[in-house]
């Protein structure tokens, strides 16, 4: 099939960008979306033009690197699917496809479709961990964990940190991402001792990165490739509520060790 692409091109962080139009001829339905872009890029490079920069690595839906808006939907709109796993058989001959980077103040565009998502890392650095050192830990079976809790923690832990939730949210809110980590650790006995401090510092870091707040619109859950549930946002709200009631002193972000 033959497609027309309208792709966001932007030289670097400080330059202005624009939508450029490219033809994508002879696209096979068996290609993944990224393979389609690879082929377009081969064509551009053969002509000596700079290829469209986009992020990807594992190409099997688990590393969370790939990231782009396709026709206004993060990851392209197939349920539970990252763009690297999206295949061209979902499009039809003659389609025009608009491709844009994630857009959020906290995710500046570095080039074309590549954004800087280090804000997510800083949120984890602020408290998304259990403060234990290597060694000296009790036997793995010393603390039984109810299967339902283990399963729920795993549901939350499945987040791949791709940022689609932020990209899709009308407020560019990172609540789904943050709530997934807070909920995972708050559900397991290993994470409970630190839950107050964790909720406070991760939320505080989230705010200072410039993400928006959640107004419960639900787009994040709909585009999330790991189908992380909005229930976790409710759980974060609950955790934070308890935390501000219990919290004697304000924890600072990054007060790690």
């Amino acid at each position: 099939m033959n497609l027309t692409l309208k792709v966001w091109r932007q030289k670097d962080k400080d330059s202005d960008g624009h939508l450029a139009t490219y033809a994508a001829p002879d696209v096979s339905p068996d290609m993944s979306f990224l393979e389609m872009l690879d082929v377009v890029n081969e064509g551009l490079m053969t002509k000596g033009e700079e290829p469209i920069a986009f992020d990807s690595d594992c190409r099997e839906g688990i590393c969370g690197t790939c990231s782009m808006m396709i026709n206004g939907v993060a990851h392209g709109g197939q349920k539970g699917t990252t763009v690297c796993q999206l295949h061209m058989r979902r499009f039809k001959d003659g389609d025009t496809i608009v491709i844009e980077p994630w857009r959020a103040r906290a995710f500046p565009v570095l080039r074309d479709l590549v954004t800087d998502r280090s804000a997510f890392d800083r949120i984890i650095q602020a408290g998304g961990f259990v403060s234990i050192n290597t060694g000296g830990t009790p036997d793995g079976n010393a603390i039984p964990v109810a299967k339902t809790d283990a399963d729920k923690a795993m549901d939350a832990a499945a987040c791949i940190g791709c940022g689609a939730c932020v990209a899709a949210c009308k407020n560019a809110s990172a609540m789904l991402f943050v709530s997934a980590k807070v909920s995972q650790l708050a559900t397991l006995p290993q994470g409970k001792p630190e839950r107050v401090r964790r909720a406070l510092s991760m939320v505080s870091q989230m705010d200072s990165e410039g993400f928006g707040a959640c107004t419960v619109t639900g787009s994040c859950e709909a585009v999330c490739p790991k189908e992380i549930s909005l229930d976790f946002i409710a759980q974060l709200n609950r955790e934070y509520g308890k935390a501000i009631l219990k919290n004697p002193v304000q924890s600072k972000a990054g007060e790690g060790a």
């Binding site: 234990i132 964990v145 299967k147 399963d151 995972q184 290993q190």
Partner: peptide, 16 residues
């Protein structure tokens, strides 16, 4: 042991 203590959600039996 290390990973469990970090909060890695390994699969569990009903007995925990």
């Amino acid at each position: 042991d290390q990973c469990v203590a970090q909060g890695v959600p390994f699969a569990r039996e009903y007995g925990g």
